[in-house]
Design a protein around this nucleic acid. Sequence first.
DNA 1: CGCTTATTGATACTTGGTATCAATAGGGTA
DNA 2: TACCCTATTGATACCAAGTATCAATAAGCG
Lengths: 146, 146
Amino acid sequence: MPNNTINPEDWLTAVDESGFRVTTVQESLIDIFAHSEYPLSAEQAWEIARQSRPKTGRATVYRMVEKLEKLGLIRRLHGYQGCSHFVPTLPELMMLFICLSCGRADYLDSQPLNDLIQQSEHISGHHITDSRLQFFGACADCQQNA
Amino acid sequence: MPNNTINPEDWLTAVDESGFRVTTVQESLIDIFAHSEYPLSAEQAWEIARQSRPKTGRATVYRMVEKLEKLGLIRRLHGYQGCSHFVPTLPELMMLFICLSCGRADYLDSQPLNDLIQQSEHISGHHITDSRLQFFGACADCQQNA
DNA sequence: CGCTTATTGATACTTGGTATCAATAGGGTA
DNA sequence: TACCCTATTGATACCAAGTATCAATAAGCG
Ligand SMILES: [Mn+2]
Ligand SMILES: [Mn+2]
Ligand SMILES: [Zn+2]
Ligand SMILES: [Zn+2]
């Protein structure tokens, strides 16, 4: 789905370097998230995981999703169908567009958001440590094929 | 909490004009949301409601919250403590800042966001019909008293 | 003041997510 | 490579947020 490169190897390295053991469940889940066309919920990831690894436990998937999110490798989407879907993190592309027609996520360059944060801090006097921006609508493709 | 005026009367009018009956539960809940210092979850609103109206049903509060959200009178917050808290809607102030220290929400002028949307539509080719922006950090007050 | 029906409250239920704990398997060491 | 220690897993029970049901209540209209 993401228009940038995502390398599952790097994710495993990140898990390893954070002091966690690298396990086969992890490899399978990382692969699932890194290669999915669409945002996935833990429940959906579990379904997919069991296709190639039937004994995979539900709790394990939830634990893994939590870990990947904490490591900053995936990010939660706050959407119209709820707030339990995740997409891979692309650090320089923090602005997300979600197509309400096809469901895909598109990553946008975050520089304009950084500028907006600076400006807002200055105007409001608040110290902004994190932000979350999502757009919703019809993607370029879906407009064409409408 | 909001730095602008919120008039519970107007909310009742909106409910009325949308063809719904105006009931005492509604009056009580609208008052609760319109006057709260902090974002409230349905569960919290229920607790408060029962103080002055003990027989208030839980499902009723959930239904009411849903209705108020659909009418655009309150908005869901997507925060660090989950995604089940609501604040009154102030149409021209769509950018929200949430203080991670005191929990209060601050409304920011949405013009810069509108500009950003225009710009993003142009660059990406997507048609943006809705957006959601939240900042997190330490509010001006909490920085002072730290 | 009744009549009609939208709304409510009690209850049961579902869904998304957690806690527990014995069994398994990473991975460091010899 | 074999062994050990313990992090991680899977099965299960559990919990909390939210929803469906349905009889009882109360808006609001004539
Ligand atoms: Mn959310
Ligand atoms: Mn190994
Ligand atoms: Zn699309
Ligand atoms: Zn504060």
